[in-house]
């Protein structure tokens, strides 16, 4: 029953995003970025199921975004840039994951942070290649062979992001219900038992890690093609912290939570920054504090409570 309930809520959320974008076109940019971040946070959620928090997943967002920026001059089409950026992040996730899944808890989190900061430093220091903190501009890509004018292009990317978000949420739900997904909670509670069942806990975690890198890569590619300007800040530790922040805000109990969290985060940030320029971080921090204190299940938990459902 919860699946049907989730499907209805997901459909309502997608409709609300499209309606908001239609009514206020200036929101298209914000909602596209929010949807992209929601996809990245969905990957974080998979790792949270295993009790592991990554403080370095902006690495994959930035890696994909820079892949898009480097490839754009020669392959300037969303249909090519998006999959190539995402696959590049997934490949990096496989390499990094093979190393970090040997560690747990704080070591896992900090190793991810350290590796993301190494990449951030490279982006910043290798000026001749990356243009340092100036970043790289991405010219307006074609959309599946079509040269769209800017407004139509922004709509096309938003719809693409929403389609990917729904596909990723459906996949994550199926994955979490499978033995592999259930194995993630098993890692959190009795990892040794998995080994004595003939199952490699590292392989279970690695599979989730690679999927999470792929999702972060999709997010990075969408962000690069939306903002059309990539800078090292995409890989900075605060960007990774933001993803964890959104995961807690949205709630880790369901696959819609990351998207609720991301949309709420971006909207609060935009409106708070516009209304209280010097205090938007205070407002965001207070929001998170309230969620942690009074709604442990995050926004998704609140939605379930309000609609009389249990996770």
């Amino acid at each position: 029953m919860i699946a049907k309930h989730e499907a209805v809520l997901a459909a309502l959320l997608v409709a609300a995003v499209l309606a908001a974008a239609a009514v206020s076109p200036w929101l298209i940019f914000i909602l596209t970025i929010a949807t992209a971040k929601g996809i990245a946070v969905l990957g974080i959620l998979l790792l949270l199921r295993a009790g592991q928090v990554s403080f370095g997943h902006a690495l994959f967002v930035a890696f994909s975004a820079y892949t898009v920026a480097f490839l754009a001059p020669v392959l300037n089409d969303v249909a090519l840039l998006l999959p190539l950026g995402a696959l590049a992040a997934m490949a990096l996730g496989l390499v990094v994951g093979a190393f970090v899944v040997r560690y747990r808890e704080i070591f896992f989190g900090m190793l991810n942070l350290a590796l993301s900061m190494v990449f951030y430093s490279l982006l910043e220091k290798l000026y001749t290649i990356t243009h340092g903190t100036d970043g790289i501009r991405v010219s307006l890509p074609r959309f599946f062979g079509m040269a769209l004018e800017r407004h139509a292009y922004e709509w096309a990317v938003l719809v693409t992001a929403l389609v990917l978000a729904v596909a990723c949420a459906v996949f994550a739900r199926i994955y979490l219900a499978s033995p592999m997904g259930q194995g993630l909670s098993a890692i959190k509670t009795r990892e040794a038992r998995l080994e004595f069942m003939g199952v490699s806990a590292r392989l279970v975690l690695l599979s989730a890690y690679v999927i999470s890198a792929l999702m972060a890569g999709m997010a990075g590619a969408i962000i690069a093609m939306t903002s059309r300007h990539v800078t090292p800040h995409l890989g900075y530790w605060t960007a990774s912290g933001e993803l964890v922040f959104i995961a807690i805000l949205g709630g880790a109990g369901g696959v819609i939570g990351p998207f609720l969290g991301a949309i709420a985060f971006e909207l609060v940030r935009v409106y708070a920054a516009a209304s209280f320029a010097d205090a938007w971080q205070l407002i965001l921090g207070t929001t998170l504090l309230l969620v942690i204190m009074f709604a442990r299940g995050g926004l998704w938990g609140l939605v379930l409570k309000l609609t009389g459902r249990r996770a």
Partner: peptide, 20 residues
């Protein structure tokens, strides 16, 4: 006993079956 405490008894058994 090394059971997966977030799972039901049935899910614990099913995980063992699936692992095989």
């Amino acid at each position: 006993p090394q059971l997966f405490t977030e799972h039901t008894v049935l899910e614990n058994a099913a995980l063992a079956v699936a692992s095989r």
